[in-house]
């Protein structure tokens, strides 16, 4: 009996927190479907009929489709690089004994621990002297050295990799590069999938760095566009709500599909880390 009471209390707490988590998103979706006039009259709690009109106002003032294209382009390329080279580096550290291994470990640790903003001004000045300011290069290229991915895959290889298999493949005449592509990449797929989801979300949400490195509006990613609209470019409340709603949508869809993989991946990372 006592246990049943505590379980009911726990559910009340959980549902309360659930409402806090979901409420802002609910309001956002509702507001996106109402006209600005309606929003001025008071609280709206049921969906309205103005979504497409709001979207029309939004697309009149900004090319949001292009922003999505830019965001996908940057996020997918960065994710692919981070996964491919992350696995490669992890394999290099896992499989071979070589002179500079200790040094590379140290670099990896430094890369994990140093806060991201420390080198931001240096990165800006570097991009300027390399003439790659206002391009996607300084956003995409650094993902080759994604230290948390390397670390995660390295941990996974320690558990899942079978040395006999690699030796057998070598006897069959596989080169080291073939070994990496034919065996290591497929075998580490579960860890790569987890990191791919995490990295995609992180690159998609990236705000500070692109804000500093990009100037041309036609190159802006979704967060930069939302920021611009929010800073006064868009006065239309309904259209602003629509902009916020559709900027969040891809991540919510991604999460609806992968939420189990994401939360489990986090737990796995946390236990090892």
């Amino acid at each position: 009996m006592k246990k049943r009471v505590s379980i009911i209390l726990i559910y009340i707490l959980l549902i309360f927190l659930l409402l806090i988590c979901v409420f802002p998103f609910y309001i956002m979706i509702i507001n996106a479907t109402h006209s600005t006039q309606e929003l001025y009259t008071g609280l709206q709690i049921i969906p309205g009929r103005y979504f497409f009109e709001n979207m029309g106002h939004l697309t009149d003032s900004v090319n949001i489709a292009r922003g999505f294209g830019n965001s996908f382009y940057v996020s997918i390329l960065s994710t692919a690089l981070s996964i491919y080279f992350g696995a490669m580096t992890a394999f290099g550290l896992f499989e071979y004994k070589f002179k500079l291994k200790k040094l590379i470990y140290t670099l990896l640790m430094v890369s994990m621990m140093v806060p991201g903003q420390l080198g931001i001004i240096g990165l800006f000045r570097l991009s300027r002297s390399l003439n790659i300011l206002d391009t996607y290069w300084p956003l995409i290229l650094p993902s080759v050295a994604n230290s948390s991915t390397i670390f995660f895959v390295y941990q996974y290889l320690n558990i899942a990799m079978d040395d006999d298999l690699l030796d057998a493949a070598r006897i069959d005449g596989s080169t080291e590069v073939e070994l990496f592509h034919k065996f290591v990449l497929p075998l580490s797929k579960p860890s790569l999938a987890t990191m791919a989801i995490f990295n995609f979300v992180a690159y998609w949400n990236n705000f500070f760095t692109p804000m500093i490195l990009l100037f041309s509006e036609e190159k802006f990613t979704v967060p930069l566009i939302v920021n611009n609209l929010n800073n006064g470019m868009l006065q239309d409340l309904g259209a602003m709500s629509a902009a916020i709603a559709i900027s969040i949508l891809p991540i919510i869809i991604l999460y609806a599909v992968f939420s189990k993989a994401i939360t489990e991946g986090m737990m796995a990372g946390a236990v090892k880390g």
């Binding site: 080279f85 580096t89 071979y96 670099l107 420390l118 240096g122 300084p138 650094p142 230290s147």
Partner: peptide, 27 residues
């Protein structure tokens, strides 16, 4: 095979040095 370890790590090392460490030192 030792050289392969270094070769596989090389992209990470180069990109880390250019886009992370150098900006930090330059800052």
């Amino acid at each position: 095979r030792a050289k392969w370890g270094l070769l596989f790590c090389l992209p990470f090392v180069i990109v880390f040095l250019v886009f992370q460490l150098y900006p930090i030192i330059y800052s």
